[in-house]
Amino acid sequence: MISNTSHAQTLRASAGEPEKAESASSTSPSEIALTNVSKTFALGKGQTLDAVSNVDLNIAGGEFIALIGASGCGKSTLLRMIAGLEDPSQGSITIAGQSPEDCIKRHKLGIAMQEHGLMPWLSAWNNVAMPFRLAGLPIDKKRVDELLALVELADFAQAMPKQLSGGMKQRVSIARALVLKPDVLILDEPFGALDAVTRRLMNNELQRIWSQQPTTTILVTHSVEEAVFLADRICLMSPRPGRLELIEEVELNRPRGLDTMHEPEFRQILAKLTTALDDVCTQGSRQ
């Protein structure tokens, strides 16, 4: 039941988003192509686990993709392969025609996970500046200040992580992910550990940040609502081994705000995907 829809480039060519329309062109340096990607883990004693199976997907430059699916369906594994943190057992992944490792070497990848991963011994400012140090680049102080301002934490620049709330830590983590102006932004359940209210606010925040700094983004989430709110396209994965079961375009205008969640189109896509997710999970549990 794969309904692979046409490209999402046209979606974002709306007035008011000239930067994004430009970044989504076919010459974008951040176009991602997954060809027949599979991942099998060796469990020892000759046993193996098929985590991801035969995934084909093309992601346009500047596109926001959400991966949803049941727990353990391989969406995080797929994300880690795109990020170059795992190697596919089969198939290939290219980012602008090069391997994810090349993307890493060029420092063109930004990453934020469910665990914020801030260094507890560094202030918020120094955490945001960390990618410069890790990449061996001179620290662009203006850029760090700019990112802290973007995530509205300029007043907390010198605060230590333990002095920040969960939501603030995640905002620092997102600022850190964006500081090197990545071509690809990898988000693995970045708000998964937050309470429902903070999560909604953070989604709104991420949407705002993303609109200001359009970047090819791949988000893994358990929340269908979050996926519909943020993404241009949503990929629903089947239970293990993870395959692309459904690809849904989200034709909601941008910029989106908290009001967007009350629009009929939003509720409609949400209902459709929730039902599809339930179906997929039920089928998986019956197998």
């Binding site: 170059g84 943190l85 890493i104 070497k105 996970m113 960390m130 140090r133 890790l134 990449a135």
Partner: peptide, 21 residues
């Protein structure tokens, strides 16, 4: 922590820098 390892790898850090930082 694994998340620190991931962040370190995602920025193409050398072994030396990963060790020190």
């Amino acid at each position: 922590p694994n998340v620190h390892r991931d962040v370190t790898r995602a920025y193409g850090t050398t072994h030396w820098r990963a060790l020190l930082l």
